[in-house]
């Protein structure tokens, strides 16, 4: 990337706090609905997200990972406990500087790729020239150059997800929350997209929280990995990988790489079995 390229996310200012976001005793209980009683989906959970780190969350499906993201982003109000972002409480509203990429396809089918990506910029009143510059860059970065005028229905699932990532990135968020963004991709593309994500993270110094179900992916990308228990989700452990900041998918060749993945799996095997309803088999 050349020096002239615009940055996709703002560098946190000098005075940025070391703790970027904080969850304190957060739980989330979904109220009872027709067909089932109340669902205790999450917590209590407490942890600090450090400014500029790449943090991944792994856990069995249905353990409350997406719920955690909703609460952190201010899209859901915690049933107990509190959430803070950059020192200010988060409650029921997405704070400025937080960008989310959802697990489901959230591209707008009625807009072209270009208009999808520019959506947030237009709403925020960013001027046309600046807006165009950022869209051009994000579209190129996500490999969507040839599809600027295509509609999402003409794209594959993975490309649509990239549209959503681009749409979030152009807003230059200081905290990026990604919920299984590569779920629709094949393994090879996943690895390449992971490298791109790492590059982006290094260049922008944004804080990244990535939810994934792929243990290798979490290992490869992250500084720290939160391992969640079966529902209600809590962190069993937070694993520090200790990888250098300059890294990419070739990291997997290192002899100590497998050890981290093994450690994650040893935590998760029992939890996954419990999530499948075979708790006793875990012993």
């Amino acid at each position: 990337m050349t020096a002239a390229a615009p940055r996709l996310a703002a560098v946190p200012s000098e005075a940025a706090p070391k703790v970027h976001a904080r969850l304190d005793g957060v739980t989330r209980v979904y109220p009872p609905r027709a067909g089932h009683g109340e669902v205790h989906a999450l917590g209590p959970i407490s942890f600090d997200l450090r400014a500029g780190e790449f943090f991944s969350v792994v856990g069995p499906s249905g353990c409350g990972k997406s719920t955690l993201l909703d609460v952190l982003a201010g899209l859901a109000v915690p049933s107990a406990g509190s959430v803070e972002f950059e020192g200010k409480p988060v409650r029921g509203e997405v704070p400025d500087g937080v960008g989310v990429v959802f697990q489901e396809d959230a591209s707008f089918p009625w807009l072209t790729v270009e208009d999808n990506v520019a959506f947030g910029l237009r709403r925020a009143g960013v001027d046309a020239a600046e807006s165009r510059r950022r869209v051009d860059f994000a579209v190129g970065f996500m490999g969507l150059k040839d599809f600027r005028r295509a509609y999402p229905s003409q794209l594959s699932g993975g490309m649509r997800q990239r549209v959503c990532i681009a749409r979030t990135l152009v807003m230059q968020p200081r905290l990026i929350l990604l919920d299984e963004p590569f779920g629709a991709l094949d393994q090879q593309t996943r690895l390449l997209m992971g490298d791109e994500l790492l590059r982006l993270w290094r260049e922008t110094s944004a804080t990244v929280l990535l939810i994934t179900h792929a243990l290798d992916e979490a290992n490869l990308l992250s500084d720290r990995i939160g391992v969640m228990s079966a529902r209600p989700g809590r962190f069993i452990d937070i694993v520090e990988t200790g990888w250098p900041r300059e890294r990419d998918s070739r990291l997997a060749e290192r002899p100590d790489f497998g050890a981290v993945t093994s450690r994650l799996w040893s935590y998760l095997r029992g939890e996954s079995l419990r999530a499948l309803g075979q708790g006793s088999a875990a012993r």
Partner: peptide, 28 residues
């Protein structure tokens, strides 16, 4: 889709904007 409404909240749209920019086109 609920995820589109979440996206609207992420972009901090007002209720009117949400209806006009998200709900109506999605329901078109």
């Amino acid at each position: 889709p609920r995820v589109l409404l979440k996206t609207a909240r992420m972009h901090r749209l007002s209720l009117l904007e949400e209806i006009w920019r998200i709900r109506l086109p999605a329901a078109a």
